[in-house]
Amino acid sequence: MRQSYAVLALCLLSPWAFASGGGQERLSDPKQAEQEFFWPVVYANGGSSLYCDKAFNEEGGLFTASAVYTKKQIKSALRCLTDKQCALKSGRYQHMLSDLHNLYPALSRVELSRRNANFGDLADSVPSKFADIDCEFRTTFQVVEPRDAAKGNIARAIFYMHREYGLPIIGQEQMYKEWHQLDPVDDAERARNDVIEGIQGNRNAFIDNPALVNELVP
């Protein structure tokens, strides 16, 4: 039922939502993308959070949609401060923010630690900040390292944003390539890719063809 409603909503999207963009051209309203498609369609049957692997049945206050390539990083790449300035810098700005390939469910409390930090490899001696909920998510002041089973998803989302929108790879490219190998594409990621294609009309090529990472130039 939720999927049927969302498909109908996709057909009824106002013309402005289909303005020409970069990687995808259908979604240009981040709030709409999250409220009408991310939770009701991509995760219609529930799922688990990316960073901590915590199960959920539906959208709720404990969980949020987390952008792997964050809004702050996109603004930095475009060298703009406000949404209006960024939209003037790039007509693809709102499409970047709305792109479902870049969004994953996360615990809200974990997202607060994640959003202003970059991904990186930390020393084994750095403790998990969320050991109280059995979540392997180590942090320092400006760097976070998630569990191994999330690293490939993160790397492929970042490579996708780089390939589709020309955004710089934030962090160490070689590290992301290693994460990509450490945590290979799985069936859940392939199924998610299929669902998102049905909504916004494009796919993450690094999920379909993992060997594409070899074409990235350092």
Rank of each mutant, 00 (worst) to 15 (best):
S76E: 12
P15L: 10
K71R: 12
S20A: 11
L212I: 05
P184I: 13
Q32W: 03
A157S: 14
A17F: 01
A157T: 13
S48H: 09
C11E: 15
Q85H: 05
L182C: 15
I170N: 03
A67L: 10
R147P: 14
V185C: 02
D194Q: 12
E145Y: 04
K72R: 13
Q94W: 06
H180E: 07
L50N: 10
E136I: 14
N214Q: 04
P40L: 03
H101N: 07
Y160N: 09
A87V: 07
A65I: 05
F141M: 10
E145C: 02
W179H: 12
Y165N: 08
R203Q: 03
R190Y: 14
F130Y: 15
G171V: 14
G166A: 00
G46L: 08
A6G: 07
L107R: 14
N116L: 09
G23K: 04
D186I: 15
P210K: 07
E136V: 11
F56L: 14
I207H: 05
I133F: 15
L112Q: 13
D148H: 14
L88A: 03
Q35F: 06
R163F: 01
S49D: 14
A67K: 00
L112V: 11
N204C: 13
W179F: 09
G201T: 05
N45W: 03
S28E: 09
Q181Y: 04
V144Y: 02
W39V: 02
R163K: 14
F37L: 08
R203S: 06
C86K: 00
L216A: 02
S125P: 03
G171E: 05
E34W: 00
Y51G: 12
R192C: 03
L103P: 08
V143I: 15
V68W: 02
L81A: 11
A188D: 14
A117F: 04
E111K: 01
V7W: 08
R26Q: 03
C11Q: 11
S20K: 11
E136C: 06
Y165M: 12
Q172R: 12
A6I: 08
A211N: 06
T64P: 10
D29T: 05
D29W: 01
D194V: 15
E173Y: 04
W39G: 04
L81T: 15
A123C: 02
F130N: 05
E58G: 10
Q32S: 07
G22I: 06
C86Y: 00
L212N: 12
T82K: 01
W39S: 04
Q3H: 07
